[in-house]
């Protein structure tokens, strides 16, 4: 029996600039606990926009969003920031680390913000995550000095640090060569298989999508399959 972790009801979204345009049309979807879901579609199909809505960063839409049986529409931005911090891990196409901080500090910052554990505990946890991603030896390097693949793995470690309900990836392999892409994909696969981690990834890489548990395809703001 698969339990539903994330559920949307009739999500619609408009862009108003430069002219009004409906980018998402009545999206109903469910994400199950522990699955590796990919969102595919041509550029402009609304897949990234949908991911940002699911991540609670963009709450300017019609319809309902429910994560872990909690209704999130209408919550205050501060509450949502806290929710993201605790329950959602994000991996972007461009690695998006804080350049002045070391790899370890980058991983630690969301946990320090959450403030659930002591700094020493967080440090051990961060080292565990880096070790899981195979880059524990790079921990004390300033993140701007790491290679692209290493940076993306640090970003995944950061997404994992607060043991989130869901990891969301926006073209997580889009900017990586085939070797690093494989490493990132395998890492995701391993996380779902071994740790039961739920992952939603937007991608236009068909090979990537075909190897995930389930694929949702989007076209012109609608789910087609």
């Amino acid at each position: 029996m698969k339990s539903v972790l994330l559920k949307t009801q009739g999500i619609t979204k408009y862009f108003h600039d430069p002219y009004t345009f409906q980018v998402l049309k009545d999206i109903d979807m469910e994400v199950y606990k522990g699955e590796f879901l990919s969102l595919v579609g041509k550029s402009g199909s609304g897949k990234s926009t949908l991911l940002y809505l699911l991540s609670t960063m963009d709450m300017d839409f019609g319809g309902k969003l429910n994560i872990n049986s909690e209704e999130l529409t209408g919550k205050s931005p501060d509450y949502l920031a806290r929710f993201r911090n605790e329950h959602i891990g994000f991996v972007f196409q461009f690695h998006f680390l804080l350049p002045e901080f070391t790899a370890l500090e980058n991983v630690m910052i969301p946990a320090l913000k959450l403030g659930k554990f002591s700094e020493a505990k967080i440090k051990t946890k961060a080292m565990e995550k880096l070790d899981l991603l195979g880059i524990a030896d790079q921990a004390s390097k300033v993140s701007s000095k790491l290679s692209g693949g290493q940076q993306q793995r640090v970003a995944i470690a950061r997404a994992l640090i607060n043991d989130p309900l869901i990891i969301m990836g926006d073209e997580p392999t889009g900017n990586l060569d085939s070797i690093n892409s494989k490493i990132v994909f395998d890492t995701f696969k391993r996380l779902t298989r071994d740790l039961g981690q739920t992952i939603i990834a937007v991608t236009h890489d068909e090979d990537f999508a075909s190897r995930t548990d389930r694929t949702i395809e989007m076209k012109d703001g609608k789910i087609t399959s």
């Binding site: 991540s55 960063m57 931005p77 501060d78 920031a81 806290r82 929710f83 993201r84 911090n85 605790e86 959602i88 994000f90 972007f92 998006f96 680390l97 804080l98 350049p99 910052i109 969301p110 913000k113 959450l114 950061r158």
Partner: peptide, 16 residues
């Protein structure tokens, strides 16, 4: 700007 985007995405509120 980029750093601010990351911070907000990883759960820092506007006031933070």
């Amino acid at each position: 700007m980029k750093d601010i985007a990351i911070l907000k995405a990883t759960g820092f509120a506007a006031k933070d």
